[in-house]
Amino acid sequence: MSVPATVSERPATRRRGAELERAIFDSVFDQISKLGYARLTMEGVAAAARTGKATLYRRWPDKNALIVDALRAALPSPAEVPPQGGLRADFLALLRCLRSALESSYGATFQALKAEPGAGAGLVHAAIGERVFAPYREMALRALARGVERGEVRPEAVTAMVANVGPAMLIQTYFLEDPVISDDFLEEVVDTVILPMIRR
């Protein structure tokens, strides 16, 4: 009579596509939270995700590439925010997306990575810059351009510096003052800072 296999002895679950990717990324965040960046390994992630190490290496050459992809997948992107039909609504929607990125459910993982010197912090900064801040700037510039067409915005206000004002205020508040960003605060940023600065 055969003895049932224990959990650790059972073969890896056969998953593919998005389901497998999600399991791998979840394992990355879990391992970083428990072990930190330096002790995270491809082997450990594969074991936690119950998949083969070769599966990871077929797609990611090393743990840095894997972590960057996991961060990109976890972060909401302003590039996915559709136009809201008005300048105020556009900026509020973009700032809410930015807030969601800062308050991501993987915030503890981001903090763990940023706390380690060197590569860990660099990966977070690169991923957030590419996935969140660069798209925010592009979408904000488009919102400003639409405002110019409607006669709401001064043409000379369509600049990267103006587009960066909202993120700069959120980052300062989040990291230096209060990590809880309220809707009232976002509305105040838009109504008392951004709109007066760009209107004719």
Score class of each variant (00 low, 15 high):
M197G: 02
A121D: 06
I198N: 01
A73D: 14
S105G: 14
Y136W: 13
G44D: 06
A112M: 14
K34G: 15
A70M: 08
P135I: 12
S105D: 12
L144F: 03
L56I: 12
G85I: 04
P83G: 09
M42G: 14
V132M: 04
L87I: 04
N164P: 00
A47F: 06
V189A: 02
L92R: 05
F29A: 06
P83S: 12
M197L: 14
V190L: 03
N164A: 12
T192M: 09
V132G: 01
F175A: 14
I24H: 01
A108N: 11
A12Y: 08
R58P: 00
E138C: 04
R14D: 11
G122P: 00
G44N: 07
K114C: 15
A65I: 10
T51W: 07
Q84A: 15
I128P: 02
L95D: 00
T13H: 08
Q111M: 05
V81T: 15
Y106V: 14
A89G: 11
M161H: 07
T192A: 10
P167Q: 00
E152M: 04
R146A: 14
A23E: 10
A127V: 05
N164S: 14
R200P: 15
I181A: 10
S77H: 08
G85Q: 11
L66K: 06
L98Y: 11
E187G: 10
M169H: 07
F185P: 02
E130F: 07
I171G: 08
W60M: 10
A48K: 14
